[in-house]
Simulated assay, not measured.
Amino acid sequence: MVIQLFRLIDLMMILPEELKRQFQTEVYNYKEEKKMPFVASIEEIGIEKGE
């Protein structure tokens, strides 16, 4: 849903290069924040014990 919104916004606006780069950076950072790697339960136990 969010990606579709970004695509719509991208189609509707024309930005100067500097603002375009800033926008792309913000989108990338948002996507990176939302990544949630799978961690097996045994790995969680090791993480909690500091191993």
Rank of each mutant, 00 (worst) to 15 (best):
F23M: 10
Q4A: 13
Q24A: 14
M36L: 07
I42M: 13
I45E: 10
D10Q: 07
Q4D: 15
E18I: 06
N29T: 08
E51D: 15
L11P: 00
F6L: 14
E32K: 10
L15S: 06
T25W: 04
M12R: 09
I3T: 04
E43T: 15
M1A: 10
N29C: 00
Q24E: 15
E26H: 05
I42S: 15
E32F: 00
N29R: 15
R21K: 14
F23A: 11
E26N: 07
K31H: 03
F6E: 11
M36P: 00
E33L: 08
V2W: 09
K31P: 00
I42W: 15
A40C: 12
V2C: 01
E26V: 08
I14S: 05
P37D: 02
L11N: 09
G50A: 04
L15T: 03
K35H: 09
E33R: 13
E51Q: 12
L15Q: 08
K20D: 13
M36F: 06
A40D: 15
E48Q: 09
K35L: 13
L5G: 03
D10H: 00
M12L: 15
G50W: 04
F23Q: 09
S41I: 14
Q22S: 06
L11M: 05
S41L: 15
Q4F: 11
G46F: 14
P16D: 06
M1Q: 07
A40P: 06
V39R: 06
E26L: 08
E33G: 03
I14V: 12
I45M: 10
R21D: 11
G50H: 02
E48R: 08
F38I: 12
M13P: 00
I9S: 05
E44A: 09
F23G: 01
E18M: 05
